[in-house]
Design a binder for these strands. Structure first.
Lengths: 216, 216
DNA sequence: CCCGATTCTTGACGACTGTCAAGGAAATCT
DNA sequence: AGATTTCCTTGACAGTCGTCAAGAATCGGG
């Protein structure tokens, strides 16, 4: 993951740096444990003890690496975001026709629910909680903006490939697609397990047929 | 609100009915107190004691009228729904041209955020919590279906007035519009108060310009 | 190998939660 | 009027929460 700690030498700078990196590695490790717990239980029902139980450590260690529950949570969200907001960039850069981008994007939307469903549930949970908890607003606003930009990279590239301009502004486009995504996620998460693949197929089909009308 | 209790007469049927109606009136009264609390604090941070504090009673009374917290919550949601899922029906029945329905619907979407913002925040909160809490799924699914039907009454009437068929199925249409609505609600709830009217104006404008493309 | 710093565990605290039982207050009935 | 049912308050319970302090375990440099 990160660089392994340097072998012990009498270099106070290097060892101090290794220390810092180890400290950060532990924070990331705890963040990962926290994220799986949060994805399973949701923001409200996730306690620090529960997070610690999904990690190799005991519940007290959280306060050694994070001063607050709040700090842990926001650190988690940013950690999660790091890997998340570039999800479609490979598709954007490697697709060579509008049709290819369209169908691969539609398929990828469904795939990310299948592969990372709980993480998306957590995101929508946190985004909603930010309406009640001011402490979450800053980080939610930041990530929401990045998600909008991510979607806009797809759509503007799509417009380029098709040789037609986008019909809507970035925010409206994001709002609509996000609505469809959230709708499918909800029914994926709450419906019967046997129906999950059908839900994802429907999402793909919808986005696939909808995308042409996002261009003028 | 409900019929006032009948004056005391020696009619066991009437008095029993009055008793029941009084019992139900109290339940509704508690539900209303609970809804304002839930709308302010969100599902996670609302305790029974907090609900009671927003009502004329003490915290123990909740268990006299409801057996569970869960029963109270689901009762609240259904109670709220009663007045809610017909919000656009007056517009649907009284609009005489597609253009009128379009602009009045767009305006009403914004108005309901302005007038009942916290209730909508609560709805999205509960809908999300249903992904983590199976107990909420039944009632959420039921109301979500009614909301979809409500939106579809608007759009199908809109299509009739315009003399063109709807371009999308009810579920997709609902998902898209709901996404835009939720997006505006989020920024209405978390943004600065001075910007609220702007947010609502943007929502109205977006829906207004988007609606024609919902027809084939 | 030993000492000091770092890392982690354990146990405790005050506060809060849903739930419930006991009993007082109020309304109703005879 | 008294008796009885209904309504509501109070106080307590077992449990969980975030937080923190004290000390054990572990690790690295001399």
């Amino acid at each position: 993951m990160a660089v392994p700690p340097a072998p012990s030498v009498a270099d106070p700078v290097a060892t101090a740096a290794a220390r810092v990196s180890k400290h950060d590695t532990r924070r990331d490790q705890l963040a990962e444990s926290a994220l799986t717990t949060l994805g399973q239980l949701g923001y409200a029902k996730t306690s620090l003890r529960e997070i610690a139980q999904h990690s190799p450590y005991s519940h007290g260690v959280v306060h050694y690496y994070f001063s607050n529950k709040e700090e842990l949570i926001t650190y988690c969200v940013r950690y999660y975001k790091r890997t998340c907001v570039t999800r479609y960039d490979e598709i954007v850069s490697s697709s060579e026709t509008a049709e290819e981008l369209q169908s691969r994007f539609a398929a990828k939307l469904a795939e990310t629910i299948r592969e990372e469903g709980p993480m998306h549930q957590l995101w929508y949970d946190l985004r909603n909680q930010s309406m009640f908890e001011p402490a979450l607003r800053e980080v939610v606003l930041e990530i929401d903006g990045q998600l909008e930009a991510m979607i806009w990279r797809v759509i503007s590239r799509y417009a380029d490939l098709a040789g037609r301009p986008a019909a809507l502004d970035p925010s409206t486009t994001y709002g609509m697609l996000d609505g469809l995504f959230a709708q499918s996620l909800l029914s994926w998460a709450t419906g019967p397990r046997e129906a999950r693949e059908d839900v994802l197929a429907v999402l793909s089909a919808r986005v696939d047929t909808l995308m042409p009308s996002l261009l003028a």
